[in-house]
Write a protein that binds this DNA or RNA. Structure first.
Length: 405
DNA sequence: TCTGGGGTCCTAGGACCC
DNA sequence: TCTGGGGTCCTAGGACCC
């Protein structure tokens, strides 16, 4: 979807069309004007002067989406809002509204599923679709079907999207970037040299800033540069597995299937504080946040019907270094108090001499709650407990009577 | 003026088992 | 006195993605 969050906001605030608008940060007191207008049902009549501006922002947020008009100023996603405010102080800043984006996410995916049922979710605004067995999917190299999808999505949501059609996911993803916004690009096996190789390596989905930097140090800038390297050399410098993948990706090779269903591996909640907190000095505040995060993860697990046996914490110090601690128990849980107690044990294993800017709680090793319950309480315990010194702590419960009363 | 939140996958080393 | 091979599970950190 094109500039998805921003485009969804423009549906509510059509008067912002064409203006530099960015989405980011949390809701602030200054944003109450938007809430009041929403309550009055007058969002589309709200005068421009009433909207919060980037220059008014105080805090630690980042930009999640910028309209194309805002991008003209060099403002882009993942950029700190304070930095963006210097580039374009007059840009309108709207708070993120995930519920609204999820609503439109469901809408556009419904449209796709009705036409092409083999669809893989890649987050709230992106999917892979297998055209292979869709009637007409091969017409004009996929162009006909792509147009049909765009039309259906626009009619149902008022939103535009960009589609890349290619023999595999790797190339389709790159192709989808070629004609944004509201574009279609078709890339075949024969187009590799002309359309893919001239691109910078960073455009490959799976090459991030770190790898790009390292490639650059070896004089590898474009995908053509990468394709020209010996696979053995790549494996030496980037590891057996990643090196082999880099080689294959540069040749446009990718045999990953379109995966239509998947189970979550973990669920987590984390928060960055308005100011850095000290473990001793701000103990009460920190403890309250910690408890709330555990309650939120527990609620997420319950709502989605999962239990987990690995509880972990993440914290980020004022110097931005992060550490994590995990603990895998013998029983599955979705209970906030149990999660809080296990996470608390994790917290004791981490140095707390610096101020903290972020705290997070995670539950992993997930299983479906109904399946675990059906297996019976005895099955909750692992048949043969692994050696895990912390798991042998006699103060820890053998059975989670909160989750399985 | 620093740098969100929610995820996945991979790696490397240690513990343990057969 | 020296020291297997294959495997699983767990932890911590890191790269990457949306």
């Amino acid at each position: 979807m094109d500039a998805f969050y921003a485009s969804v906001e423009l549906l509510r605030y059509p008067q912002l069309k064409g203006l530099p608008v960015v989405i980011g940060g949390g809701r602030r007191r200054e944003d109450d004007v938007l809430l009041q207008a929403a309550a009055a049902g007058a969002l589309d009549r709200l005068p421009l002067a009433a909207f919060p501006r980037l220059r008014d922002y105080v805090g630690r947020g980042v930009i999640t989406t910028a309209t194309y008009a805002a991008r003209q100023f060099g403002v882009g996603s993942a950029m700190g809002i304070m930095k963006a405010a210097r580039l374009c102080p007059d840009a309108i800043l709207l708070p993120v509204d995930f519920d609204e984006y999820r609503k439109y996410s469901r809408l556009f995916k419904e449209q796709i599923l009705a036409i092409a049922p083999v669809m893989e979710n890649r987050g709230v605004d992106e999917v892979y679709i297998d055209f292979s067995d869709v009637p007409g999917g091969q017409e004009e190299g996929g162009l006909v079907l792509a147009r049909r999808l765009q039309a259906a999505i626009l009619a149902a949501t008022g939103l535009t999207c960009s589609i890349g059609v290619a023999p595999n996911k790797l190339l389709a993803k790159m192709a989808s970037e070629f004609n944004k916004p509201n574009g279609i690009a078709i890339v075949g096996e024969d187009d590799l040299e002309a359309k893919i190789w001239p691109l910078p390596c960073r455009r490959i989905n799976g090459i991030g800033p770190r790898t790009d930097e390292k490639l650059g140090q070896h004089g590898i800038v474009t995908i053509a540069d990468l394709a020209a390297r010996d696979p053995g050399w790549l494996m030496e410098h980037f590891g057996r597995s990643y090196g082999a993948w880099l080689h294959a990706a540069a040749q446009g090779r990718d045999d990953r299937p379109v995966v239509t269903a998947s189970e979550p591996v973990s669920m987590s909640r984390e928060t960055t504080f308005g100011r850095d907190l000290h473990a001793v000095h701000d103990k009460a505040e920190l403890g309250a946040v910690f408890t709330r995060l555990c309650e939120q993860v527990a609620a997420d697990l319950a709502r989605k019907g999962y239990v987990g046996r690995t509880v972990g914490i993440k914290l980020r110090y004022d110097d931005f270094r992060s550490v994590t601690r995990n603990f895998t128990a013998d029983v599955f849980t979705a209970d906030a108090a149990t999660i809080r107690r296990l996470a608390g044990q994790c917290l004791k294993r981490v140095p707390l001499d610096r101020r903290l800017r972020l705290l997070g709680v995670r539950v992993g090793s997930l299983a479906r709650a109904d399946e675990v319950a059906a297996a019976g309480p005895e099955a909750l315990r692992r048949a043969q407990p692994r050696h895990n010194k912390k798991a042998e702590d006699p103060t820890l419960p053998l059975f989670d009577e909160q989750t399985y009363p």
